[in-house]
Design a protein around this nucleic acid. Structure first.
Length: 495
RNA sequence: GUCCCCUUCGUCUAGAGGCCUAGGACAUUACCCUUUCACGGUAAAUACGGGGGUUCGAAUCCCCCAGGGGACGCCA
């Protein structure tokens, strides 16, 4: 192993396997790599690890890419987000298209006697495992083929023998050490692993092998990845050593855990990025939140834009302990981002949610901005706009059961009646706040009701329920016609 | 079972020997603002896993234990 400089420029990568949607743990890894590259004026590469033929799908690839695009974690090299065509000087960027590269390396290792063809069957391996476990030994394979000559093995293959290529580890008796960016010095005894597979029976490489070949060929300088890969690092170090390749810097990021402190797994579901998008989270808020799961801003900043994070990111503030994914705090972070957004921008994001729910709104941009200014303090998610705007949609006006009490008060009929008359007498189609307050005052005079006896019935006549946004804010967003229709509908109860 | 990693309020964290009677944020509770609901403001409560060292002094350094997590695959 050497510490030759790999690249004058920082080069990081995110290397998902397209076997499902992008989950938040993966998104965080991508984010950290992205931030590290940006912070250091480097390049961020997207590589697709699709060597698991059984589970990788084109569909998943598209989903992962879509999620990365949503998060705005755009890569400098890798499959183009639109065409999926490779973009960059060290492609292909999909492992399934790099097979000959892996084969060349494997052949070299084979020729040098550092790897060998192994003909052990699944059954034989399983039997070995059981025996080893029972005897309290680590469940490593012990292949009788390790000592075969290449000629011997090739002959057996020629006869139809099915073989994997395994890396020879038995003779390696020493500790392998990395200086982990997050954990400091980590030592792995070489006997921690047995002879591991490089190439599968079909010639398809295995993760630990192609990862090394690719990181080397793609000149990756810094690898930030999940802690679950920490023990894989040993195998990878062995390959780097065998090939005499420089080793990149590693940083093993803590795991994202669910509420039971278990690994948040994509197989357990319920944590995909697209799901958060659909629920009305903002990409920047999700990134802000997941960044904080294992990293902190030097000044303790909690609400950050991507720019803030790009400027402040460093690996020395990365945390080694696992972090629980707290949805409640995510919501809060989202609410903060949402409020910080200019209304026009927010509207563009809210609109699809309203459209999907069939909520009608006036087309006037000024009205939209005005309404959002009012509503956004009571929104945590984009989807929260739906019940809010439904209040203003005449087609959705109904008197809720919770309004019954307020309508039952003895002055309520007089209140709503006076309200209706004053609205009808108003000379214009819309109302200012002052006009509303004047009307409200007059309702008080005519009905004799005051306090909640006054406000609640009026509110019911406006939005169908006794609680909610201040009327002096709501009414200026509504039309005379709409208010009249609603008041009449409530009044009809007494007839 | 073996090896590796981790361990500060319920949760995310600050903390790199004295600034710590441990700070911030979310959540919680109370109060204030508000003739509703939110928003906002103020305050309270809650943590260094346990045991040994080292040191004048330890959340911070070392060791042991316990607990949690991860890996041990022709998954990544």
């Amino acid at each position: 192993m050497s510490w030759r400089q790999i690249s004058p420029k920082v080069r990081t990568r995110f290397a998902p396997s397209p076997t499902g949607y992008l989950h938040v743990g993966g998104a965080r890894t991508a984010l950290y790599n992205y931030l590290y590259a940006k912070k250091n004026g480097g390049e961020f590469i997207l590589r697709i690890e699709d060597t698991d033929e059984a589970r990788s799908t084109e569909e998943s690839l598209k989903m992962v890419i879509q999620d990365l695009v949503w998060l705005n974690l755009l890569w400098d090299e890798g499959p183009d987000a639109g065409t999926l065509k490779d973009q960059g000087p060290v492609g292909p960027y999909r492992q399934s298209q790099r097979l000959s590269l892996y084969k060349d390396v494997a052949d070299k290792l084979l020729a040098e006697g550092k790897a060998y063809y192994c003909f052990l069957t699944d059954e034989e391996i399983e039997a070995q495992r059981q025996a080893a476990m029972a005897a309290g030994r680590p469940p490593h394979v012990n292949s009788p083929y390790a000592d075969w000559s290449l000629e011997q093995a090739r002959a057996k293959i020629a006869e139809g023998g099915k073989a994997v290529v395994r890396y020879k580890t038995k003779h390696l008796k020493k500790d392998y050490v990395i200086q982990d960016l997050i954990r400091g010095e980590v030592k792995f005894p070489s006997d921690m692993v047995g002879d591991f597979v490089l190439l599968r029976t079909g010639g398809m490489p295995v993760y630990n092998f192609c990862c090394v070949v690719d990181d080397h060929l793609m000149r990756i300088t810094h690898v930030l990845r999940a802690e679950e890969h920490l023990s894989n690092t040993l195998r990878q170090l062995m390959i780097y050593e065998a090939m005499n390749w420089p080793v990149p810097e590693f940083g093993h990021v803590s795991l994202v855990l669910d509420e039971d402190r278990q690994k948040l797994s994509k197989r357990k579901g319920a944590v995909s990025c697209n799901q958060f998008r659909e629920e009305g989270y903002l990409a920047e808020a999700v990134e802000n939140f997941i960044a904080l799961l294992g990293w902190s801003h030097p000044e303790g900043k909690e609400i950050m834009s991507m720019k803030d994070m790009e400027e402040a990111f460093s690996t020395d503030r990365l945390n080694a302990a696992g972090a629980v994914f707290d949805r409640v705090k995510l919501k809060w972070v989202n609410a903060m981002h949402l409020r910080a957004l200019p209304e026009a921008e927010l509207w563009a994001m809210v609109q699809p949610f309203l459209a999907k729910a069939g909520v009608q709104t006036p087309a006037d941009p000024a009205w939209r901005e005005r309404s959002l200014k009012v509503f956004k303090t009571s929104m945590e998610l984009l989807a929260d706009a739906v019940p809010l705007y439904s209040l203003l949609d005449d087609g959705k006006f109904t008197v809720l059961p919770e309004a019954e009490e307020a309508l039952g008060w003895e002055t309520s009929k007089a209140v709503v009646g006076a309200w209706r008359d004053l609205i009808a007498a108003h000379g214009r189609e819309d109302f200012t706040e002052e006009e509303f307050l004047k009307i409200q005052d007059e309702v008080k005079n005519r009905s004799g009701a005051k306090g909640k006896n006054l406000f609640m019935p009026v509110r019911v006549a406006v939005i169908g329920k006794p609680h909610g946004t201040e009327l002096k804010i709501l009414v200026p967003l509504m039309s005379q016609q709409s208010l009249l229709r609603r008041a009449d509908q409530v009044l009809a109860r007494w007839n």
